[in-house]
Amino acid sequence: MTDLILKGLGQTLLMVGVATLAGFLVGVPLGTALYGATKRALFQNRVLYALADFIINALRSIPYIILVILLLPLTRLLVGTSLGTWAASVPLGVAAILLMARLTQDALRQLPDGLLHAAQSMGATRRHMITKVLLPEALPALVSGATLVIINLIGFSAMAGAVGGGGLGDLAIRYGYQRYDVLVMVEIVAILIVLVQLVQSLGHFLTKRLEK
């Protein structure tokens, strides 16, 4: 049983890790683009913004388990199979990207508009504004956002079992719930609690350190 739990933990960490990475690499630029599309100083484009905004909202409205099924073709395209841990990482990654994009947009929106004006008056290029002013200033908020994303993903990853992705959540459902093994259920829940606590504490610590 311990082996199974360790394996499940590994699978959970892999799925959540891959998805978080995708969230950062794609979600942050996407969120920045969304923000930029609303600002005249960057690349204001109301039509494009409205469209992107709608698509993201629509995708986020879909229940996660349905999203997993809807994304099966994409998963096959990316991973080559629709089953297994890697395959389960794809919808999780998409969820992470959507969430992170929104959080990035929010984090940037919290910054005073004056920062953009100040940067503009210094003769900043758009790239300078984003890389030297906006993102560094929003970094604490981005890290705290990422913490939230990771905790959400740990929850979502429980549904990876639907496509044979494994992970702790899947174990809890199959052994703990379907086989009435209360002990396994308790153990897994305890591990998940510790995991979430760790992520939260680490995120909090990093955010505090980044805030000046």
Binding site: P112, L115, P140, K212
Partner: peptide, 8 residues
């Protein structure tokens, strides 16, 4: 409002 970067 000065508009200094808080993290610099």
């Amino acid at each position: 409002q000065f508009h200094l970067l808080r993290r610099r």
